[in-house]
């Protein structure tokens, strides 16, 4: 596998519970705004950020879905989802936003190796 000069941002936390998700998405957007190619990998609870039926939560709390939809405007179009974690959560890809790619668990180490830079949130 060729080494990618893209930045890999790993998202592992769900919306609403903490700031980790928002910080991960912000880091991805800032990097992309500066012209850095960015790929995303959603693992574990991070997959919750991609549910296509999510609402906006408490007043004053920013909804996640508009930001996920906005990623393509920042040319962030590679959204990997860990397949094992998806199934462990009893979810199917149909419940997620369009345009994601499933990645088998055994291919995750290779994905990390391929990226020169990784940020983990």
């Amino acid at each position: 596998m060729a080494t990618s000069d893209a930045l890999l941002v790993i998202i592992r936390h769900a919306p609403h519970g903490s700031n980790w998700l928002r910080e991960g998405l912000d880091a991805a957007l800032v990097a992309a705004a500066f012209g850095q190619p960015v790929h995303l990998l959603f693992m574990g609870q991070g997959i919750m950020a991609l549910l296509n039926e999510q609402g906006s939560g408490a007043p004053g709390q920013k909804a996640t879905l508009p930001t996920i939809d906005m990623l393509e405007m920042y040319d962030i179009d590679k959204l990997w989802v860990a397949e094992g974690a998806l199934h462990a959560m009893h979810l199917s890809a149909d419940s997620l936003v369009e345009g994601i790619s499933l990645i088998a668990d055994q291919e995750i180490p290779g994905l990390l190796q391929q990226h020169a830079k990784i940020l983990n949130f």
Partner: peptide, 13 residues
């Protein structure tokens, strides 16, 4: 649509 004002790159797009 996205609840955020765009930076330069997405603005161009």
């Amino acid at each position: 649509r996205y609840e955020m004002a765009p930076a330069m790159r997405p603005l161009v797009k």
